[in-house]
Design a protein around this nucleic acid. Structure first.
Lengths: 347, 347
DNA sequence: ATTCATAATTGGAACGTTCCAAATTCGTCA
DNA sequence: TGACGAATTTGGAACGTTCCAATTATGAAT
């Protein structure tokens, strides 16, 4: 059982070549003769050789590992983002270190340090709340490509991939206004984040554009989770002049808002219009199907990974900030159902 | 910018000690004098040294990496499982390689091979459908501890951590029978998996115990997802003698069943009883709150990680098969709401 | 046959750590 | 003061790969 590790020199001896040749074969070099390549590959299989990446990494001082750190894997958005990254990263022959910070900056520090020790060749990170440019400095100084996703950090000097939160929120609110809503709330999310800020400005600008009131009471923060959505809508319904529609910080909040509405015997879509943000996978199949601003989390993960790989291959690249476009996908939760019902009632 | 890597010998030189001493400090050995330890730590910080794990791994031929491979990270169950693993693994000073197989056996082969090359010191795996004992053989032969989660594989000779699917399903169905249901369906899941098999037998045994019919038409397979739940309930409602309640393969299916019910203007909990399996995080906050068999995914991840760490530390341990206990958590989707309503109507 | 370019192969020196056995320092006790 | 054990410290030799410079085989052209 306790068999010795098989190494390149074992292969070399068995195949009657030098270890250098074996190494060349391992790297798929075109320098090596077709015949010897076949022979070497045969003995590799025969002896059950397994490549030792630690040794290779040490020698080349680089690895085939990329790190990805997210705030909350339990949130579908990040889970989908991670699988998006995984697919492209894997097919490029890399492997993914995934870590979850639970939004804790201390934990983030630890995992980033750990990844650095492991010599990741790049890092995709959705920074925890309160992350500063200085926290990323050691990384960028040592020349490790970093791409920020979801949340940007000013002056960090690294690439970032975010979504056009402002435009998305505006589109959503305009849609609600077109449907006749006048009292529209903005629900959920932590107010001290850039993403919240951008979406909220979009919401407000659409209101202003239509000459509507932007009274502050209608924007209600909460945790960006399903539970947070429940508390936010409860708070909104205590207002003397209740809203009739809401744009939610994200889909999780939107689902929570639907739950809270039902708890008050109000049917989302029919009695109250709700729009989410993200277009998480469940949005399509939920009942009522969630109208939401699609940012395509999996696609975002893929693009982030591609951006990172490009930088890794280029050696040293300019930091670029991409803001992905976004589109409103209208389903039922914003009241498509009412319109139809009215029409049906007329005919 | 292009600064040289700082190594232990640089530290040694700067601190006026030997590299061996620095190494000792790095490992927190008690052999080294308090004064020199402090001095060394100071210069480490000063020079911005970062530990090179590749080198350490090479020397010790072991790593502080554990691998985890799941079938579908997009499913909350697995995301929570991964988070559970992450928490305990991290605090033990390990780091987690996470890979997603999308239930593809080929992909699984690749990622397992890759993990082996990286020298993971242990592996937690929820095997893709169709995985055989032979697929894991190379791993166990090379002495890498493996723990199977969720799905067991016969004769693989490795530890496993599953749930008492049979007992859980029985408890759920008994509960439905107590509430007066007689036509109970079993919805969703792939029929060719061991988990399906076990849950379905539990369902059937509870029916038999109560002297009820176990006509085959009431068990309807589907993909174990939300979308699958929708199609399963649709099929169930086409039966001439419709069920009035269902035990679902998992929570995702249960949510889909609720969606499908609503699409037919039936209110889950009031007009039809549904019970899920897993107790995913959304189960509590959904409306109606989902009655489900709790397997505590995050806790399961933690226990799996603890089991694996135990084996890693023990060197060579006996394979143990743990089947975790499970409990029915009664919420609203199984009709608690009806009962209350009836009582309210009477008073 | 000799030369020359090209194709293929090869030793040995890294890479940055850990571990072993041996060496040095220190305090204490005779 | 010398000796002795304990506490610290320390040179090298690994670990398994890759890379460089150098060597050898191959074949074409003279």
């Amino acid at each position: 059982m306790a068999k010795e590790r098989v190494t390149v020199v074992d292969i070399a001896r068995a195949a009657g070549v030098s270890k250098s040749t074996v190494s060349l074969v391992l790297q798929g070099s075109s320098l090596v003769n077709e015949g010897t390549r076949a022979k070497v590959n045969a003995t590799i299989r025969e002896l059950g050789y397994v490549y030792n990446r630690s040794a290779a990494n040490l020698r080349q001082s680089k690895s085939k590992i990329i790190g990805i750190v997210v705030n909350d894997l339990t949130n579908s958005f990040f889970a989908e983002l991670a699988v998006g990254v995984d697919t492209v990263v894997q097919s490029a022959g890399f492997v993914q270190f995934l870590a979850n910070t639970s939004e804790k900056i201390e934990r983030q520090r630890e995992v980033v340090a750990s990844m650095r020790e492991h010599g990741v060749s790049g890092l995709i990170i959705s920074p925890a709340r309160g992350t500063e440019a200085a926290d990323l400095a050691p990384l960028v100084e040592s020349g490790i490509p970093v791409v920020l996703v979801v949340r940007d950090i000013a002056d960090a000097g690294v690439s970032s991939l975010t979504s056009d939160n402002h435009a998305g929120a505006m589109a959503a609110v305009r849609h609600l206004i077109e449907r006749g809503h006048r009292r529209i709330a903005f629900l959920g999310g932590f107010p001290d984040t850039a993403v919240f800020e951008a979406r909220m400005r979009g919401y407000r600008d659409a209101l202003l554009e239509a000459g509507l009131d932007t009274a502050d009471g209608l924007v209600i923060g909460s945790a960006p989770s399903r539970a947070g959505g429940v508390t936010a809508i409860e708070q909104a319904m205590m207002l003397s002049d209740r809203p009739t529609a809401a744009l939610c910080f994200n889909d999780a909040v939107a689902f929570g808002v639907c739950d809270g509405l039902r708890a008050r015997r109000l049917e989302p879509g029919a009695d109250f219009a709700v729009i989410g943000f993200d277009d998480v996978i469940e949005a399509k199949t939920a009942v009522p199907a969630l109208t939401t601003v699609s940012v395509d989390p999996q696609g975002m993960g893929q693009r982030a990974a591609e951006l990172l790989l490009k930088q890794i291959n280029a050696g040293k690249a300019e930091a670029e900030s991409i803001v992905g476009s976004v589109r409103l996908v209208v389903r039922q939760s914003c009241g498509a159902a009412i319109e139809r019902k009215k029409r049906e009632a007329l005919s």
